Computed example of a mutant assay.
Amino acid sequence: MTAVVIPAAPPDRLLGLPRSRKLAAGLAIVGFFAVLAVAGPLLAGDPEALVGGRLDPPSADLWLGSTDTGQSVLGQLLTATRGSMLIGVVAGVLATAASLVVGVVGGYVGGWLDEGFSLLSNVTLVIPTLPLLILVADYVEDSGPFTYALIISLITWAGPSRVIRSQVMSLRSRDYVDAARVSGEPGWRIMVFQILPNLTPVIASGFVWAVIGAILTESGLSALGLGGGTVASWGGMLYFAQNGSALSMGAWWWFVPPGLFIAALGTGLSLINFSIDELMNPRLRKGAAA
C-alpha cells in the first residue's frame, strides 16, 4: 500500500495569507529599535559624561562625535531611544485601552451611554491638539516619559474609538451575537469573547498609529523646548542640537542621527500598519500579491 504524502503548504501561503515583505521589514525595523531600547542605555553609560572636546567630529573613539559640551552623541542617542520607545508604547496602550472601552461598550450597549460616549469623543476631537499639549506640558511639573504618555493618550483616543464603535454597531446584529444573547450570555462575555476577537485587526492598526503619533508628538514638543530640559528622547536631542547651533556650525552628527531614528521607526511602524490593512482588505492583499 502506497503512503499518501500530503504536501505542506508553501511558506508564502500558510493560513491562506500571502507572505508580506512589508510586514517582515517592519517587524525587523521595530525589533531593532526594541532591542536598542533595552540594551542601549546599558552600553551607553552616563550620557552626561564629558568624553571629548567641543563638537568633535565622528572618529574611532567617538563614533558619532560629541556635543558642544563634549558629551557623546552616541551615548545620548542610545539613552534617548529607550525614552522615545517607552513614551510611544505606553501612550499607545493607554489610548487603545480608552478607545476600546468607549467604542466597544458604547457601541454594544447603545442608548444614553453611547450618546454620552459619543459626545465625549466629539468634544475631544474638536479640541486643538497641539496648543492643548503645549499648555499642559508647560504647566506639568513632572515631565517624565509616563507623564508625556498620559497627556498624549488623553488627546489621541477619540479618533480610534469612533472607528471601533462603528465596527461594534455592525457586529452586534450578527447571528452569532444574537445566538449568544438568546442563550443567556451576559453582555460582558459577548463583548469580550464574541466581538473583541473580530476587532483584532482594527485594534492592532489603531495601536500602531497611536504609537507613531505619540513618538512624533513627543518629539515635536521636546524640540520646542517642552521636554523638561533633558536628552531622554530623540526630540530632546534635537532641541539641544538646535540650541547649540549644530546646523550653523555644520555639526551634522548631532542632529541627523535622532532625525533618522525617528524617520526609520516611523517607517517600520507604517509598514506594519500597511500589512494589517492588507490583512483586513482582501483587495489590497490581492494587489500586493500581484
Rank of each mutant, 00 (worst) to 15 (best):
T2A: 13
P7W: 00
L14D: 03
G16D: 02
L23W: 09
L27E: 01
A28C: 12
F33N: 08
V38N: 04
V38W: 09
L43S: 04
L43V: 09
P47E: 04
E48R: 12
V51F: 01
L55H: 05
D56E: 15
A60K: 05
W63R: 08
D68R: 14
G75H: 12
T81H: 07
M85S: 09
V90F: 14
A91L: 12
S99N: 13
S99D: 04
W112P: 12
S118H: 13
L119S: 12
S121R: 14
N122D: 15
I127C: 14
I127V: 15
I127S: 08
P128K: 11
L130W: 02
P131D: 07
A137F: 00
A137T: 00
Y148S: 05
L150C: 00
I152A: 02
S153Q: 06
S153P: 09
S153F: 07
I155D: 00
S161T: 05
Q167C: 13
M169E: 13
L171M: 09
L171P: 03
R181Q: 15
R181S: 13
G184Q: 10
P186C: 10
W188N: 10
R189E: 10
I190D: 03
I195N: 02
V202Q: 11
W209H: 10
I215W: 03
S219E: 04
L226C: 07
G236M: 07
L238A: 08
S245Y: 13
A246F: 05
M249F: 02
G250T: 01
W252L: 14
I262L: 15
G266E: 05
G268K: 00
S270N: 09
I272E: 00
F274M: 13
I276H: 02
L279D: 09
N281D: 15
R285Y: 13
